[in-house]
Write a protein that binds this DNA or RNA. Structure first.
Length: 657
DNA sequence: CTTAGGG
DNA sequence: CCCTAAG
């Protein structure tokens, strides 16, 4: 076994609960929404906890923060995905799972369509696997979501899952940031259904740039078009699937509609307080968040093509462990090794501890404190190259776990109870051999990876990365292609998460809930700024004046090169005046990143491209991209100008005639 | 809600 | 990123 270093390119991020700001202005509304979100979050957690308690699922003895590898085995091809169903369904599974799965299902379909015959067989396998993964995630998701939200609110959203499904079907793309381009996940091409005609160029009605553009700007539209549209299928810069036309996408939208409706209609059920579950919450978007994602409205009312059914309903987690951005977002050895991923499933058991709220003094203060001692993730199937490094092992496991919890966690490796910090060491060098894996290897879930081992990645995009970072799933496919040269390690273990302590209040949706505190006791775990909690929690209806709660400024999330690349691609095609479309097209899955953000980013990009490299700061953006930024900016500005002077294309055409 | 711009 | 004015 030799190794290859791989840093854990992922950090957790918890996003400060925030109501989509698009609805700026109406603070009162925002407040209310946040409030609702918090309430729901707590209700959920409470529900989950309650269920578990009822089923006496507590494994008091589970040592927190550690996991044991119970089983290691080498397998051939794909992992056997055992779809062991969760035993403790926390709630209305049907609707819950369904909603969680839909996205993938749809995605897969389109992806498969896109694939070529020769890839068909493989595709099916993968498809199957993805499917299972999706299901698994859905299941786990429904059960863990509430908790997971504590760490990573966004990643739990449907969008996050979607990415994986697609990713697993993706060919092993070349290295480079492209691979992560978010647009690749957007199979749903707004352009295909968008009724809004392109603003500038008539020939652009199909979302294509005028041919002439090529000459003018120097960038190829074709590349963009094909690569982009076939997104989930191929690397944008790859010419491979050029011929592939995104028809499936359009279909997609259509297909989605019914599903969406289904989902929406599934809301009606009854449900008691005790029944209140995640799904329940989900079904009440209106209640939780009146202003759904901005992309929603238009969509819903117009074509239903969107599938954004969930809103973020988290408010507990907060940002933490933010890497200071800057250059450390790079994942090394990214494409170097193939192998990976997981399969997991299993039952989850979360030992809870319930104890009366001491301060229940407050009259009807029905607080209930729940202490989650640990989480158990029964089975995780991990595939790693024989020459995997500790780092890659961590990453792999992390990814598997993230897949379950939705991200926001880091994985630590313990050997004989001792933390193995050097990620660059090979398992062997670290003294871990096959035999060891059976009994002396352990994993720990760490909320924050600020220490060297697990490289820190700015919380950045949990959701974004989650969705666009197809690296992982991709990797997983590789082995298959290479006829699985690598051994597959089937690791079955328990993962104990740091305990969580929080207060939870009854689920009176109409009342104000105010979690006292949410925290985990492990160092560095999601420190929740009081503000955040207060934000959603306390919404003094009368306190007209300051409500800084809400005011929390969103955490800063530097755009990664991948994002920039996606942005550039989208703008090249759509122009600079259609941010909403750009958003939909390239950042549909990035819950954060509003179109305003994109617009702002573009603004800065243009600026950045104009200044000398020395003056630039932050993660350096490839000059190539900057050049494209300028080209696109120039081009679209020109178009803009053209239209301005009351020179309708037609008129011009006539003139020419 | 979206855009466009200034802060 | 935030905030606003406009559409």
């Amino acid at each position: 076994m030799s190794l290859e270093m791989e840093s854990c390119g992922r950090g957790q991020a918890a996003e400060v609960p925030r109501v989509p700001k698009s609805a700026r202005g109406k603070r009162s509304v925002r407040k209310k929404e946040a409030q609702s979100q918090v309430m729901c979050a707590f209700d959920l957690l409470a529900t989950v906890a309650g269920k578990l308690l009822d089923e006496g699922e507590g494994s008091a003895g589970a040592p927190a923060l550690t996991a044991c590898v119970k089983d290691v085995c080498v397998k051939q091809e794909h992992c056997d995905v055992e779809m062991e169903h969760l035993k403790n369904e926390v709630t209305d599974q049907d609707s819950c799972n369904e909603s969680a799965i839909l996205p993938h299902t749809v995605f897969q379909q389109s992806v498969n369509h896109a694939r070529n015959e020769d890839a068909k067989a493989k595709s099916e396998d993968q498809d199957k696997e993805s499917s299972m993964i999706s299901s698994t995630k859905a299941e786990l998701g429904s059960n863990f979501r509430a908790i997971a939200d504590l760490w990573s609110p966004e990643s739990v959203e449907a969008g996050a899952f979607t990415g994986d499904a697609v990713a697993s079907l993706m060919p092993t793309a070349a290295a480079g940031f492209h691979k992560n381009a978010p647009h690749m996940y957007n199979l749903l091409d707004p352009m295909d259904v968008d009724t809004k005609p392109p603003p500038l160029v008539s020939s652009d009605s199909t979302g294509e740039m005028p041919r002439g553009l090529k000459g003018v700007t120097g960038y190829s539209v074709d590349r963009d078009d094909d690569g982009d549209k076939s997104s989930g299928c191929t690397h944008p810069s790859t010419t491979a699937n050029r011929d592939f036309k995104p028809n499936c996408i359009a279909e997609h939208s259509r297909v989605r509609k019914p599903l969406t409706c289904k989902y929406r209609n599934a809301a009606p059920t009854r449900m008691h307080k005790s029944d209140l579950s995640y799904s329940d919450v989900e079904r009440k978007p209106s209640f939780r968040n009146k202003k759904m994602h901005y992309t929603r409205q238009r969509t819903q009312r117009s074509t239903f093509k969107r599938r954004k059914l969930f809103d973020r309903h988290t408010v507990l987690a907060s940002e933490f462990g933010r890497a200071n951005g800057k250059g450390n977002t790079k994942v090394t050895g990214r494409n170097s090794h193939a192998a990976f991923l997981e399969k997991n499933k299993g039952t989850k058991s979360m030992p809870f501890q319930k104890y009366e709220g001491n301060n229940s003094a407050a009259s009807n203060d029905s607080h209930v404190k729940l202490k989650i001692k640990s989480f158990k993730v029964p089975e995780l199937l991990v595939e790693i190259p024989e020459n995997a490094t500790v780092g890659s092992l961590k990453k792999t496991v992390l990814e598997a776990v993230n897949a379950i919890l939705g991200g926001g966690l880091c994985v630590g490796v313990l050997h004989h109870g001792k933390k193995v910090r050097d990620d660059s060491k090979t398992l062997m060098q670290a003294g871990i051999d096959q035999d060891d894996m059976l009994d002396s290897l352990g994993f720990s879930l760490e909320p924050n990876c600020t220490h060297n081992p697990l490289q820190v990645q700015p919380p950045e995009d949990i959701s974004f990365m989650e969705t666009i970072d197809i690296t992982e799933p991709l990797a997983r496919i590789a082995p298959a292609d290479s006829s699985c040269k690598h051994g597959e390690v089937n690791v079955s273990h328990e993962l104990a998460l740091t305990p969580l302590t929080m207060n939870y209040q009854g689920s009176d949706h109409d009342s104000v809930h105010s979690p006292d505190k949410v925290y985990t006791n492990s160092r560095a775990l999601v420190p929740v700024p009081a503000a955040d909690l207060d934000a959603g929690a306390i919404v003094p209806v009368n306190k007209s004046k300051r409500s800084p709660e809400q005011g929390q400024r969103r955490i800063r999330r530097p755009f990664s090169v991948a994002e920039v690349e996606a942005l550039v691609l989208a703008v090249e095609k759509l122009g600079t005046g259609r941010w909403r479309d750009v958003k939909l097209r390239a950042f549909d899955n990035a819950k954060h990143r509003t179109y305003v953000d994109l617009k702002d980013k573009w603004k800065t990009l243009v600026h950045t491209a104009s200044i000398s490299p020395q003056q630039r700061r932050g993660e350096p953006v490839p000059q190539e991209l900057l050049d494209r930024v300028l080209a696109a900016q120039a081009y679209w500005s020109q178009q803009q100008a053209k239209l301005q002077p009351r020179t309708p294309p037609l008129a011009e055409a006539r003139l020419l005639t």
